[in-house]
Amino acid sequence: MNSKCESLHHSSQEPQSESDNSNSPMEYDIEPCGRSRNTTPANNLLFWTQCQLLDSILPTGGFAHSYGLEAAIQAHIISGPEDLKTHAIHVLENTGSLLLPFVYTANRSPDMETWSRLDKMLEATLTNEVSRRASVSQGSALLRVAATVFSEVPSLKNMRDALLVSRTLSFHHAPVFGLVCGLVGIDSETTQRAYMFITLRDVISAATRLNLVGPLGAAVLQHQIALVAEEMVQKWMDRPVEEACQTAPLLDIVQGCHGYLFSKMFSS
């Protein structure tokens, strides 16, 4: 958390300030008394907001998606926990290179104009129908939930109402996530890391439901992968959308096959 988030009532018009010190190594410094220096009432509240946004209980439908895992299992590309780890890492790498730029840009300028441009760009960038549909369903669900839950940020609801009228928009997940986090006052580094977290969370959760790994094994795996995931956050964060690219084409091809599966549990 950083010190600029004094208020949850972050106006949509207000650009993220230049003084954004999210990269400051001081942010986790502990005061001699053992209390974090950022312990202000606003920051405490922001912590609850962050947790809620990252909680799998938030009804955005993340549980319906396996990020290509189900197709990869049925194609016999993945057959055990070791392959799962590799798969999760590739999903994260691809998410970092392809989607973090959209999360970042939407978070830094959480306004309608930027967001609409990002949404149209991502619609053209997600050329894989399966992941495009997954992104649209999670994005529209997240915006609906956020507009209802975070009623103290009226711009969220206003924006959603205005956007629903327009028929040219798709509500892709990454820009919606960046926008929502930006409006509730979460800084851009935390937002990008959070996006990687929910991606990992959903892959791991899908793996347990596909019986690839037990719940305890899944937790161990999630913790192990966190190290790699953090490396990827460092590598791919703060990039402009013009640099967005796929880094795991095989994954994309396999995920695109999801529609061909005869029996399936997930929608992507």
Partner: peptide, 25 residues
Amino acid sequence: RPLFLDSVLLEQGSCSSIAERMQDY
């Protein structure tokens, strides 16, 4: 008006090699 935007980047990486990402393909 962007209709189709696609970039594929394969770079020997810190996290995984290209061969690892491509398996036997």
